[in-house]
């Protein structure tokens, strides 16, 4: 990676976004924030992948871009399922906040 210093801002901010998203996904109870946090984590991961496209000194590597496109498709599908579940849960919970702790059986 030494020869591709221009990729570091992408790598660094990708990692930062990943960590921010992880923090929100774990600590925030609101389901919509969790879904958004998952997408922020995803964007961070995609940026790290994009920085991998700048490996070496030649032309950008097309493989990570193909991975990112596939990853976006997967993330959109997962988001759709999560939002559908959230809409089903909304009337039951009387809101979109996940109650703390797993339910006791």
């Amino acid at each position: 990676m030494a020869e591709s210093l221009h990729a570091w801002p992408f790598f660094g901010s990708g990692v930062l976004l990943f960590v921010l998203g992880l923090h929100a996904l774990v600590t925030r109870p609101h389901l919509l924030i969790k879904v958004l946090a998952f997408n922020v984590m995803g964007s961070g991961t995609f940026m790290v992948l994009l920085s991998a496209a700048a490996r070496g000194s030649g032309e950008p590597d097309p493989v990570p871009q193909a991975l990112v496109i596939t990853g976006i498709v997967v993330a959109v599908s997962a988001t759709a399922v999560a939002l559908a579940l959230m809409l089903r849960l909304y009337p039951i919970l009387g809101g979109a906040g996940l109650p703390p702790g797993p339910p006791e059986d």
Binding site: L22, G42, T45, V48, G71, A82, L85, I92, L98, P103
Partner: peptide
């Protein structure tokens, strides 16, 4: 529904950590 939501969140978190490893 609640169990499915919790499972989905853990599952997505796990997948995303895995994908970062792939990157």
């Amino acid at each position: 529904l609640l169990a499915a939501m919790r499972y989905l969140m853990v599952g997505l978190l796990g997948s995303m950590a895995y994908l970062m490893g792939v990157a």
